[in-house]
Design a protein around this nucleic acid. Structure first.
Lengths: 182, 182
DNA sequence: TAAAAAATGTAGCATGTGCTACATATCAAG
DNA sequence: CTTGATATGTAGCACATGCTACATTTTTTA
């Protein structure tokens, strides 16, 4: 691995950690440089453009995310209601909150028409959905719509109650009720 | 009402309309001035600061929001699956898309801890939920959790598929399936 | 060890931002 | 009509943005 590649990986790692903790926030190159313990000059030496930096970092976050999921969950099949229990517990956990905040940030930028963020969100959403639908103990034809419903209901809590996720408990419980009859 | 107050109201009105149609987007003073048919010089003559402008506009939007909902829908009771049909149609409509985009914007800012945006989102979320639960033809105890679930599932589509809401059709259909057995 | 290549610092450009100083124009009150 | 307040245009400041030109140091290679 060339020095360039190592440096890029190091920078991406530091920025990914920071974004997960602090949300997307200020993405100015001078600020990114601070976070990565280098100078803006060097950032733009190792990367061609600011967008390339963000793409690399968000790609890393998106890619590493399903690993996290696999680590937190097993890979054994789950009944839908149980999957909801697990995912909701994870989302409610403060350690995961940064990722959700980040997700909201990305989506809102994507929905403003920014094609760069649009592509990233699409990729991440697909990752979540494929992962979850693979775990569901249901007929194949039902897996994907169910996974999409569960993911959207969970994400919806973040939109609806961004300042206090506990308010989402009732809706999630209701979803589990409905899913238990499957 | 002084001329100053009238001018302020006029500006706030134009900006609110624009934000509801186009999302928060570019909030630079020069752009806001264009939208409000005036100059940046005049915007900052009638308002002390850019933040004061945004506060006034978002306050206006938050306050008048349930009126918009009542105007679009009637007030007759609906079975949950039918409510989903109507709301989803409304959200899928391009004319409403801006409101959702705006909501996403506000939520993402709120989730970063900004108390001003937090309050607005809370107000809007509560408005939607109360409005929807009032329309549901269900036992009282079930109304609110159901309304929250429906709203969150719909909002979740916007987070999951910000660039192409049609992808949310399958999940919404699944939700309707589950609700039909109630 | 000399030459070539890679890495890094310094300074700055062009554009965009929120906001303001200053000069005028318009209008109401005496 | 004069005068003072209100309203509006023109120009620009100070700072932030992504990015780059140029010089210099450090490392690699022959």
């Amino acid at each position: 691995m060339s020095k360039r590649d190592r440096k890029r990986a190091e920078i991406v790692g530091k920025l990914a950690t920071h974004f997960l903790e602090a949300g997307l926030g200020d993405t100015g190159v001078r600020r990114l440089a601070e976070v990565a313990d280098t100078s803006d000059r060097m950032l733009l030496y190792y990367f061609d453009t600011k967008d390339e930096i963000l793409a690399a970092v968000l790609g890393e976050i998106g890619g590493g995310f399903t690993d996290v999921l696999d680590a937190v969950f097993g890979t054994e099949p789950l009944r839908p209601a149980d999957a909801v229990t697990r995912i909701w517990a994870m989302v409610r956990d403060e350690a995961t909150a940064g990722q959700l905040r980040l997700w909201l940030d990305l989506s809102s930028r994507a929905s403003r028409g920014d094609p760069f963020f649009g592509a990233i969100v699409e990729q991440m959403a697909e990752g979540w959905i494929v992962w979850l639908s693979g775990m569901l103990d249901e007929p194949d034809a039902e897996k994907r719509p169910l996974a999409e419903l569960i993911m959207s209901a969970i994400d919806g809590q973040v939109v609806l109650f961004p300042t206090d996720l506990t308010k989402g408990d009732a809706a999630v419980a209701k979803l589990q009720d409905l899913l238990r009859d499957l």
